[in-house]
Design a protein around this nucleic acid. Sequence first.
DNA 1: GGGCGATTGTATGCTCCACTAACGATTAGG
DNA 2: CCTAATCGTTAGTGGAGCATACAATCGCCC
Lengths: 150, 150
Amino acid sequence: MPTLKLMDVKSRGLGGLDGILGFHLRLAHGAVYRHFTETFANLDLTQKQVSALWLAAEEPGISQVELGRKLSMDRATTMTIVNRLQDRDFVRRERSDSDGRKQALHVTPTGLAALDEAKVCIAEHEKWLKARFTAAEVEKLVEMLTRIHE
Amino acid sequence: MPTLKLMDVKSRGLGGLDGILGFHLRLAHGAVYRHFTETFANLDLTQKQVSALWLAAEEPGISQVELGRKLSMDRATTMTIVNRLQDRDFVRRERSDSDGRKQALHVTPTGLAALDEAKVCIAEHEKWLKARFTAAEVEKLVEMLTRIHE
DNA sequence: GGGCGATTGTATGCTCCACTAACGATTAGG
DNA sequence: CCTAATCGTTAGTGGAGCATACAATCGCCC
């Protein structure tokens, strides 16, 4: 038996870590995150910002807490996201008339234009991501991921 | 047709975002990340640190670049991870004798003990995560996630 | 209707992670 | 032997998550 140390691990060589589901989830997330960042480099938008902008556009007048809840962010984190979007004139805050505690978020025309651009990039990004799966697999994957995060 | 605006979106209310695979991946990652952090609060270890420690233990003498490659981290990020592990006396750096540029990483007995503790927590964490899937589903999920990150 | 607890927004500060750019040391190859 | 590539290291930037604290507002209960 000659030395076959290099055969002990598979090509990537992750050893026992290879059986950890959470580990693969983190690596996959990282890979997608990297590709996303590349795709959105010229738009200068992050995943969070796009998600928040998208949601705010779909639900005009949504409060920050509600936005944060849907994206699983706490209030402080939501603040920084909304702040950045507001600094770039993508959304504006407006005191809710029905509840004085809430800020009603509204997407500006500038923000809508940015969102339209972003959606094109998202489509491209999703195409890259989904290219490795069949439609049925994508559906199954989304369903399983949903079981994790919902 | 009365107003059924509230029926337009599903319970979570994600609207068009619901069809985006990358979005679900990010949410799922976030949920797992949160649970991981809870589970490891007393050990004061992060996912990255555990992964790095685990890998270093399985491949004694591994170089930092190699470690970073397997965990998809660049050199700078790997540095900060290894620094933290070294500060806590979990690993030690040793100049490689075969290649003067490389640092050979070795896990200390202290680090091994911490890793053993961590593996118990990992098992618990994985159990929580996998509870929502059948064994076949877990296998399929890992396989699909691998297609994304490899 | 008055007070109290809950909710919301906000500000501050900490930690972690990822990336870039630079520099020095070392190695490998033409 | 000299040049290009690799590796470790440092410093700086930015996004994101979280805890805490505080003020304003709302809802509810007595």
